[in-house]
Design a protein around this nucleic acid. Structure first.
Length: 520
RNA sequence: GCUCCCGUAGUCUAGUCCGGUCAAGGAUCCGUGGCCUUCGACCACGAAACGUGGGUUCAAAUCCCGCCGGGAGCACCA
């Protein structure tokens, strides 16, 4: 026996086989395409209830996608329910609830393929939170503090109790009633939780539960002056709405502790929490407040401006929500904070659209050229809509002898022979004339040789195109004639440029064909 | 500073709970070649990783300890 245990595994296997034993399983598990999604603790299929709690202060963006798709994923996995709970408590001056965002967020959800099983508004539930405040007070768990915010913070940092911390339950009850009755102005009093002023995490010491605000709320106006903070509202709703699992970003971990603390104080059992780490898309410097400002100021082209990286803007760019879902789920529920290049998302989208997207020619920043010796029989040519898929058909394109070529390529290849893609070879002049003069180039051969390839548009029949870039920039140029009839939302690949989506058709003499850049 | 979290290729990720089939899999990026009329796609090939030091063990990406590095939170916002 001792002799066997010392043998390497491979040899053991061989000996086993020689003895006629069964071959051990050697199959690898299938390669995973998504990240790791653990079982939800204690989850029972059909009984899982999850919630999405967006704050209606802007459109949903790429950074919110994880919240959407992870919850959607678990709902499907456990055949559960997903509630939309608008986290529309009052906010503050910088972070305000605004009416248009309710519908905008619902539209975002719909776009992402998420149909909530029910929708709630915290602003409808404010009255529900007050009895809970009473219960907390009655257990001696809170006190009304009238310290100015700054002093409150300083005391918290140093672990110093303010005089009101020692008030009796009766005193707190009376002060709370005074808050409700309007006996304090906003900022004059808050209801604070009694935790432990020596708690190792300073952030956790005697946090504020309820505060006063007289801001006008878009749904309930000034009906309430006493507003709950996120932690209390969530602690109450997670119980009352029967949430079975809370899955959210790890920026909210301390709120877990708050909710658990409250539940323990009140002797109720709440759901477990799961988190994911911070996800950043390198190119997307997402800031809801900046987007808000620039949309309001008119600098951005509304919430569909590419710079917002909103779901709406991604759709506008031709990036499918399915690609976004796969992209988002590929990170699993890892707690690590990560930064991912947008290219990964683009690659995912390309997989979905490349095979079905027609090709078209577009020449940005054009130079007008005239080809000397251009073959007369090539005035028009037939080009395939997709190089690899003959089934996608072809279109007839007006060609030379006059063309538009990309200035950048013409300059880079001065004096050299180049290939007009799918057409002929020409020699470019050694130097370009100044101004907008037509540049003479020389036909060389039809023979397809290994030369730099340039996309081209026949000058005789070109259509003006305006391309909106992802930085909000505009590139103008010429496109081939067939673009004129392109319907809005059609996706094309502009050869050697990238994937674009049509915004508006051509109105001759008025507006160019407007397209939005999607990705390379 | 305090609290919590995280370290697998350039970037993500699987594997870590339950040590051996991991001389580490997938995606993306990069390079080369092919298809030879896209700088796209596709095909083939290639380059590329267990933060670090110690310990336990026949055996460590996996268990234990130290160190180093990165991130988040520390609002009368959400």
């Amino acid at each position: 026996m001792g002799e066997i245990t010392g043998l390497p595994l491979a040899e053991l296997t061989d000996r086993l086989a020689a003895l006629g034993g069964p071959e051990p399983e050697r199959e690898r598990p299938p390669p995973s395409t998504t990240g790791e999604f653990p079982e939800l603790p204690g989850a029972v299929p059909g009984k899982v209830v999850l919630r999405l709690a967006p704050f209606p202060s802007g459109s949903l963006h790429i950074g919110n996608a994880r919240m959407l798709f992870v919850n959607q994923y678990y709902r499907a996995r456990y055949d559960g329910r997903l509630l939309l709970v608008f986290d529309d408590t009052i906010g503050n001056e910088e972070k305000r609830v605004e009416p248009e965002f309710y519908d905008m967020i619902r539209a975002d959800l719909e776009r992402a393929g998420i149909v909530p099983d029910a929708t709630y508004f915290k602003s409808d539930r404010i009255g529900l939170y007050y009895p809970w405040a009473r219960r907390i007070i009655d257990r001696g768990g809170a006190y009304v503090c009238t310290c100015p915010a700054e002093l409150l913070r300083a005391n918290r940092a140093s672990g110093t109790a303010c005089p009101e911390r020692s008030q009796s339950i009766e005193e707190t009850g009376a002060a709370w009633q005074r808050m409700l009755d309007g006996g304090f102005a906003p900022g004059e009093a808050v209801l604070r939780l009694r935790t432990d002023l020596q708690d190792p995490d300073p952030a956790f010491r005697d946090r504020v539960l309820f505060r006063l605000s007289d801001l006008d709320h878009p749904r309930v106006g000034r009906k309430y002056r006493v507003w709950p903070l996120l932690e209390v509202a969530a602690a109450v709703d997670d119980i009352e709405l029967g949430i079975s699992h809370v899955i959210r970003g790890k920026d909210l971990v301390m709120e877990d502790r708050m909710e658990r603390f409250l539940w323990e104080l009140l002797g109720v059992q709440g759901p477990p929490f799961l988190h994911w780490g911070i996800l950043r898309v390198r190119e997307a410097k997402v800031s809801k407040s900046k987007s808000y400002r620039e949309v309001k100021s008119g600098l951005y082209d509304g919430w569909s401006d590419p710079r917002t990286w909103s779901l709406l803007s991604l759709d506008r760019r031709g990036i499918s929500m399915d690609a976004l879902r796969t992209f988002t789920l590929s990170f699993g529920l890892s707690l690590a904070d990560i930064e991912v290049p947008a290219e990964t998302l683009y690659a995912e989208n390309r997989k979905r659209i490349d095979a079905t997207t027609p090709r078209r020619a577009f020449v940005p920043d054009p130079v007008h050229v005239a080809v000397e010796g251009y073959p007369a029989d090539l005035a028009t040519v037939e080009l395939p809509n997709h190089p690899d898929l003959p089934a996608m058909g072809s279109r007839s394109v007006t060609a030379g002898p006059e063309f538009f070529l990309p200035r950048k390529d013409v300059e880079r290849n001065r004096g050299a022979e180049v290939r007009l893609k799918d057409l002929v070879n020409v020699r470019l002049p050694a130097s370009l004339p100044v101004g907008d003069d037509v540049v003479p180039v020389t036909f060389t051969t039809r023979e397809n040789r290994r030369l730099p390839r340039l996309q081209w548009v026949g000058a005789a029949d070109a259509v003006p195109v305006d391309l909106l870039g992802i930085e909000g920039d505009h590139t103008t140029g010429w496109g081939e004639r067939s673009l004129a009839a392109a319907p809005p939302r059609q996706i094309f690949q502009f050869e050697r440029v990238g994937f674009v989506r049509v915004e508006a058709s051509w109105a001759p003499g008025q507006t160019p064909v407007r397209v939005v850049f999607g990705h390379p």
